Simulated scan of single mutants.
Amino acid sequence: MEQIQSYEEWIEIAQSLDSLLLFVKTDNCSVCDGLLPQVAALQSDYSLPFYMVNIADAPEIAGQLSLFTAPVVLLYKEGNEYARFARFVQMNELNKRLGELEEWGKHVD
Rank of each mutant, 00 (worst) to 15 (best):
G105Y: 02
A56T: 15
L21R: 00
Q38D: 12
E100M: 04
Q5N: 15
N54S: 13
R84H: 14
Y76Q: 12
T26Y: 00
L20T: 00
K106G: 03
V53R: 05
R84L: 11
R87Q: 10
L74Y: 10
F23S: 00
R87N: 07
E100F: 02
A41H: 14
E60H: 12
L98F: 08
E102T: 10
V31C: 02
S6D: 10
F50N: 05
E102M: 07
P71C: 08
V24S: 01
L94T: 08
L94S: 04
Y46I: 13
G34S: 07
M91Q: 08
I4R: 02
H107A: 10
Y7H: 06
C32E: 01
Q5R: 13
E8I: 07
G79M: 11
V73A: 11
Y7K: 09
T26G: 05
R97S: 07
L67G: 08
A62G: 09
E78F: 14
F50S: 10
W10N: 04
A62S: 10
K25L: 00
S47P: 15
Q38C: 01
L20N: 00
I13M: 03
Y7E: 07
R97V: 05
M52H: 15
R87H: 08
S16T: 09
M1C: 08
K96I: 08
E102P: 10
E8A: 07
P37A: 03
C32S: 04
N54F: 11
A58K: 06
E60N: 08
E103P: 01
S66W: 06
V31M: 02
S66F: 10
L67R: 05
C29G: 02
F88E: 09
N54L: 08
A41D: 15
L17Y: 07
G105V: 02
S6P: 13
Q38A: 11
L65V: 11
I11E: 10
F85R: 03
Y82D: 11
D45L: 14
Y46V: 11
S6V: 13
P37L: 07
N92C: 10
V73S: 09
A56I: 09
E78W: 10
S47Y: 14
C32P: 01
F68C: 08
K77Y: 14
L36R: 04
V53Q: 08
T26Q: 04
Q3I: 11
A86W: 10
A56S: 15
I11H: 04
L74R: 03
I4T: 03
S30N: 06
H107Y: 05
Y51C: 00
Q43R: 12
D27F: 06
F50W: 13
G99A: 05
I4H: 00
G99Q: 05
K77V: 14
Q43L: 07
Q38L: 15
Q43C: 07
P49H: 13
E78K: 15
S16N: 14
Q38H: 13
